[in-house]
Design a protein around this nucleic acid. Structure first.
Length: 922
RNA sequence: AGGACUAUAGCUCAGUUGGUUAGAGCGCUACCUUGACAUGGUAGAGGUCCCCAGUUCGAAUCUGGGUAGUCCUACCA
């Protein structure tokens, strides 16, 4: 084995082998465990959030697979309607072509080409992460099977009256020319203005002043509203005002939607261009005057002077014209929330169109109940509130999109605009007895991407067929996802699955945090702070990283700023840390209810951990390979104290890991393993094994026992660690496994260690703790007194009880070796102790004679520090115990524990004070 | 406007039902290339657990009120 761990080569080697041998496929068994991957965008690439999420899922999957569940991790990708179409359109635009130049059919061909070309990126990256996905069942949301499921769901919902077509105000994206759902609109506060206009009253005297942030919409005004109880305007209700620029008269109406306190208390009502006004308009039977084209330019419903102007040009002209007429009262600065499309980033317009809707209210009812009843649990639980809040006030879901890439809506129109829903044109004709001479044309629109993702848990398993996979793996065990798509995806999956399967899609929703950069900023291309997980695995030079972060920016002027920041943060680029280190970093940060600030220092630490593991294996193999490790049942072995202790410790660790994973606390599982492997197994046990293995006088069965323990405990923790660090554990296990008597082609399919508390012996633990205390006491003196590490010491022991004597007699070998002692012996009663530095282990006094080694003043300082620590501690303890209320009311066990502590500390203090005095008196 | 989350060492974070001397990693200081490992070892320094009040014998932990930050939802023209 190499001296340092080199992940690159063995990772791909093992992944290829696992995949080729089919280990990722379900292995059979009666109890199922399944996870459906949140399908990434087929043309996308992996980001840190994916990396985090996949790592969590893979650990859960590997853990359950090893525990003998029939385990399926369903893989697949999403067609991501708008996102993908935009990419292809942008490519075409670079060649000066629009999708309309190509026509629908040709354009869709292009998209499929692009999918074939780029679709492998993300799946390749998923493999690099070690994800044990069942590639043999890979699905795509526009597969034949999934498309059939989409169609089935649409038609059935339509027939049940849960999908309908209607004319409503929608969020219209004037750049993409499509409706989008409320969730796809991002509203953020921006600086704007509030314009105050005077609308003259019809019949002469005076005017009403209205305020607006969007002056151009006045061209579509249908009324002015005041509050019904507003005395200022009560007498005007029912009269008319002259709508300037338009030569129309519009009524003054009363509606309690109006806030009397805001502005003038008069609101212009534009029913076709504002969601609130739309409702007011409906209540009052006002005309819906649409003044926009699809591009949000002014259409011919407006006065000729404005027709054809873009909305922003129209805004300026309206303001200028009103000003010219003396009707502009004033302009104020005003902060307002501006709605923008999450993809296009252009300002969204409320726009009156015909669209398809899902009656979400109806579907939400059982979906709410499922969570209320605990059929679905959120981890952490607080997300249930978020879910309820949204579901209880859910709005109908606009599912049609005016795009070409997606599932086309299975509806056909005749020339009268009458529509028919069905599988295909022929079926529609037949079912509706439509003559051949009636022309039918299919709805041009496609469905929202999330419509097909909502069916993901069951459509991937073959629904609407009742397949064996559905029976076995549905409902899935857990959904691992970010909170950002609880509404987009999680809620809709719950609704659709309950409706069509009458069962939940998953039993648990594990919601993880967002991965942010070191400053806590969201990672985004435009911020130039994106880290590609693959670059953490393979490493990347500074130049390549700079290139990656600045190429293809939407706003190229940001490039130099990004370069500066990148150079500052990664002056030498990024080192190659390997997949296992990256995964372990994710786990260590996966605590609940908290976003992750990605700190490069963490991954470095876990890279070192990999190296530690590697070298521990080298040590173990060096001592065990080609040696008798006592793997036969009948082997004559004697286990040392250290052997028995570490065997217990690994069981203890197994219990901790099991508990942590069952609570989705992968951070706790990872830290339990880290601490055990590094601080117990490597730091102590490997050291404790040396006195036996290297002692020529040691009995053969004792050596055999230690070898057996070395190898079997390592083999056990390799399996414990495998779900988190699949590669390094597999590589080492290949050699270690057989030496421990295990057979099988891969660690992946070995059984997961089940903790056995019988293996834990309390008195062995105490003995080792005692040993550690004595060794640390001596090392402390050594370190503080600057005694050369190689210098062998002669140490005396004093006081102490029978247990101390027993422990010394049984463990002096360990002490000599680990504390580098020439000699350790008891100071006989009545013998004068030499001048010495002192350490304490309970009652036991450990004396390191000073002769020539120790500086008197330094020891005085050291003792002084120890003493003052004890004194602070003691005064706190005394205060507590002198408090009658504490002694009376606290549980007896707590009180006696404090009393014992007090006693021990007092004794320690006295000892040290004596010692200090003696030294001072020299 | 409503709601959620966060605040612990210089940095990134643990701390499960209130009882620890408040922990880890990184960083820092000193010493050390000892036959697994300098991507290492040994020892050490470093904390007003955001602030204020309350409950309690006892609060980092529970309650209330602040402060700061992050986010979600709904929005006033």
């Amino acid at each position: 084995m190499d001296k340092t761990f080199k992940p690159a080569e063995l990772e791909t080697r093992w992944y290829d082998e696992w995949e080729a041998k089919g280990y990722f496929a379900p292995q059979g068994g009666t109890e199922a465990y399944s996870i459906m991957i949140p399908p990434p965008n087929v043309t996308g690439s992996l980001h840190m959030g994916h990396g985090f999420q996949e790592a969590i899922m893979d650990a859960l999957i590997r853990y359950h697979r090893m525990r003998g569940y029939n385990t399926l991790w369903q893989v697949g990708t999403d067609h991501a309607g708008i996102a993908t179409q935009m990419v292809v359109e942008r490519q075409l635009a670079a060649q000066g072509i629009s999708r309309h130049d190509l026509g629908r059919e040709k354009f869709i061909e292009k998209v499929w080409e692009w999918k074939e070309e780029s679709g492998g990126t993300i799946t390749r990256q998923l493999r690099r992460l070690g994800s044990s996905l069942d590639w043999s069942r890979e699905r795509f949301t526009m597969d034949e099977g999934l498309s059939a499921a989409v169609q089935e769901v649409f038609i059935r919902l339509y027939r049940e009256g849960l999908i309908y077509r209607g004319q409503r105000l929608v969020n219209w994206d004037p750049a993409l020319h499509t409706a989008i759902s409320d969730l796809e609109v991002i509203s953020e506060e921006e600086q704007g203005h509030l314009w105050h206009f005077n609308y003259p009253l019809v019949g002469g005297e005076g005017h009403l002043t209205v305020a607006t942030t969007r002056p151009e919409t006045m061209l579509g005004d249908a009324a002015v509203a005041v509050h019904p109880d507003d005395e200022r305007y009560a007498h005007l209700i029912g009269r008319f005002v002259q709508l300037p620029l338009c030569n129309r008269e519009i009524p003054v109406i009363a509606d309690d939607y109006v806030d009397r306190e805001f502005g003038t208390g008069c609101v212009k009502i534009t029913p076709a261009h504002d969601f609130n006004d739309y409702e007011v308009g409906r209540r009052h039977g006002l005309p819906m005057i649409n003044i926009f084209t699809d591009d949000a330019a002014i259409n011919d419903a407006a006065p000729a002077a404005y027709q054809g102007l873009d909305r922003m040009e129209a805004r300026q002209k309206v303001v200028a014209d009103l000003d010219a007429l003396g009707l502009l009262d004033k302009v104020e600065d005003h902060r307002l929330k501006v709605p923008r499309g999450d993809r296009s980033n252009v300002v969204i317009e409320p726009y009156l169109t015909d669209q398809w809707y899902v009656d979400a209210k109806e579907l939400a009812k059982p979906a709410i109940k499922a969570v209320e009843d605990g059929d679905i649990k959120f981890v952490p639980k607080q997300w249930e509130n978020t879910y309820f809040a949204w579901m209880r006030d859910i709005q109908d879901w606009c599912i049609s999109r005016q795009l070409w890439w997606g599932h086309r809506i299975p509806a056909w129109y005749d020339d009268d605009g009458k529509f028919y829903v069905g599988e295909d044109e022929a079926t529609v004709r037949r079912d509706n007895a439509l003559a051949d001479n009636i022309t039918l044309r299919q709805d041009e629109d496609v469905l929202d991407t999330w419509f097909s993702s909502a069916l993901w848990t069951f459509s991937t398993l073959g629904w609407p067929e009742e397949t064996d996979e559905l029976a076995m793996f549905h409902p899935s065990s857990v959904l691992v996802t970010g909170f950002d798509i609880i509404f987009f995806w999680v809620a809709r999956m719950i609704m659709m699955t309950l409706h069509f399967r009458k069962e939940v899609p998953f039993h648990t929703v594990y919601v993880h945090g967002l991965v942010r950069d070191a400053e806590g900023q969201k990672m985004s291309k435009s911020k130039g702070n994106v880290i590609d997980p693959i670059d953490l695995i393979d490493g990347i030079t500074l130049d390549a990283l700079l290139e990656k972060r600045t190429v293809g920016l939407m706003q190229p002027q940001l490039a130099s700023k990004i370069q500066t920041a990148t150079r500052r943060q990664f002056p030498d680029g990024i080192a190659a840390y390997g997949t296992d280190a990256l995964r372990f970093t994710y786990f260590s940060l996966a605590s609940t209810g908290r976003d992750i600030k990605f700190d490069i220092g963490r991954i470095e630490g876990y890279r070192n951990f990999c190296n530690k593991i590697w070298n521990a294996a080298r040590y173990v193999l060096m001592n065990c390979e080609h040696e008798d490790c006592g793997i036969e049942e009948s082997a004559d072995v004697e286990l040392s104290l250290a052997d028995r202790w570490i065997i217990g410790k690994v069981q203890d660790t197994a219990a901790k890991v099991e508990h942590a994973i069952s609570n989705y606390r992968l951070d706790m599982a990872s830290s339990a393993l880290y601490e055990f492997i590094w601080n117990e197994y490597c730091d102590w046990y490997l050291e404790l094994s040396k006195p036996i293995l290297w002692d020529e006088d040691a009995a053969e069965n004792a050596k055999r026992g230690t070898r057996q323990t070395l190898i079997s405990v390592m083999e056990t923790w390799l399996r414990l660690l495998h779900p988190m660090m699949p590669f390094i554990t597999e590589e080492i296990w290949q050699t270690v496994g057989p030496l421990a008597g295990k057979s099988g082609p891969t660690i992946m399919l070995q059984s997961y260690p089940q903790s056995d508390s019988n293996a834990i012996d309390a008195s062995d633990n105490e003995d080792i703790e005692w040993l550690k205390k004595v060794i640390i006491g001596i090392r402390n003196i050594r370190g503080e007194m600057n005694i050369a590490p190689g210098k062998e010491l002669s140490v005396l022991l004093r006081k102490g009880n029978a247990e101390d004597r027993r422990r010394l007699s049984q463990n002096s070998q360990y002490l000599r070796k680990l504390a580098k002692l020439a000699d350790i012996s008891w100071l006989e009663e009545n013998t004068e102790a030499p001048m010495a530095a002192t350490a304490l282990a309970g009652e036991l006094e450990i004396l390191v004679p000073m002769a020539g080694l120790i500086d008197k003043d330094a020891e005085i300082v050291r003792l002084g520090r120890e003493i003052s620590k004890l004194e602070t501690d003691l005064s706190r303890l005394r205060g507590k115990l002198e408090n009658a209320a504490f002694v009376d009311k606290a549980p007896a066990a707590v009180v006696s524990k404090e009393q014992e502590k007090l006693k021990a500390q007092q004794q320690a203090l006295e000892t040290l004070q004596d010692q200090l005095q003696r030294i001072q008196n020299i």
